[in-house]
Nucleic acid binder design. Structure first.
Lengths: 210, 210
DNA sequence: TAGATTGTTAATCGATTAACAATC
DNA sequence: TAGATTGTTAATCGATTAACAATC
């Protein structure tokens, strides 16, 4: 059974569709046509229909798409109907920001452990998750069957942390550092390269003012 | 004089080229061929040469590219030879993390003001930049001729902050919130949608384990 | 000079857009 | 039923890859 390969470009648009649908749902909108969604989200109606039809016919001719249904379908496609166990490695300000964001906004991602070079004691302690020193990461991840490691350590330690996590059975790395990691093919790596984004901003600004 | 339009895909790769070249330079590597860079960075040698030739012939036949020179050329293309005045709006943990990253790693981006709903007093005070309440953003940005506003406020305030900044003459918005902003065409917006990245990670993990 | 590697044109591949028949 | 809008095929557009002449 050969799955049709979905292009990367399509996948990258899915979370955005989902965000707009969530907002529409919050506003009480029950249905939307590809044409109206196009105006909102900025993709062509044709592209929207093509994108969605990679996964199935979620609409209804003459009517459009049910907002709630389409939201849920996309959630399912993205794998957001499953639960993920997560550790955060590096509990500086970025790690803290991420931890707080996830625990407030991402019910399917469960932070089961937090690691840092120093054991942080007061103020920044995080809910039920223990804060541990990095040395115990490998044992913990293996024992707890952690799915995802979020890496927010200083650049030069990122590869080492990633290697440790992978050896301990972690299957996904969310990398928020400014380096690219070298990892086996069966591990999924997703990068948030903020500095690259800032540099792209510089490019477009400079181009704009010409 | 009609400039050749450079595709978005090319621009998005430039910061990555620059990062690898910086690292090579740090390691003392003086020259590199498109073939060797390909092995490192993961783009095809052909693509690398095509990308670079959008902006000029930076290499030398039979030799390759000078690492230092190519790094500097790309920096120039990205507009990283210019200086940018920046304000950070929202000084929670994410704002603090960003401020610290920029002041330590981005010499061309100058944080001239920091804004938050509360005036934060001790501990998190930031170098020379004043921390001000959001109400004074408009006047400050206009008076100081701020180029870029970094937005790290809670989701529901992001559009308001962006509007204020734009009215005060800001030309670029670096948006780190989970919403898309609606802004005039002459303002450049660059988004870091971390939650979209996390959702893409979920997709690829779920696909992997099938 | 011979070998290496770029710059650049041409070929291929893939993604987006347009069009329209199917159908609610 | 008539009108609206999807699902889907075909056409177009753009980006990537291959090939090779130019040249260091």
């Amino acid at each position: 059974m050969k799955e049709k390969q979905i292009s990367n470009a399509v996948i990258r648009r899915l979370p955005r569709y989902r965000r707009f649908l969530k907002e529409l749902h919050r506003k009480g909108v029950e249905k939307i046509s590809s044409k109206d969604l196009s105006k909102l989200i900025g993709y062509t109606a044709s592209q929207i229909r093509q994108d969605l039809n990679n996964f199935g016919g979620f609409g209804q001719q003459g009517y459009g798409y049910s907002v709630a249904n389409l939201h849920d379908e996309i959630s399912g496609i993205l794998g957001l109907d499953k639960d993920y166990k997560m550790v955060i490695v590096g509990y500086g300000r970025l790690g803290q920001a991420i931890a707080s964001y996830i625990s407030n906004n991402e019910p399917k991602f469960h932070i089961v452990g937090i690691f840092d070079v120093k054991q942080i004691i007061e103020d920044v302690e995080f809910k039920d998750a223990q804060i541990m020193t990095c040395g115990s990461l490998a044992d913990f991840a293996r024992k707890e069957k952690v799915d995802i490691a979020v890496i927010t350590v200083p650049t030069e330690k990122a590869q080492l942390v990633a290697d440790t996590a992978v050896r301990a059975g972690v299957k996904g790395i969310w990398n928020l550092t400014a380096v690219d990691l070298d990892l086996p093919d069966n591990v999924v790596v997703e990068n948030v390269h903020m500095s690259d984004s800032l540099h792209a901003l510089a490019y477009y600004m400079q181009k704009q003012e010409q």
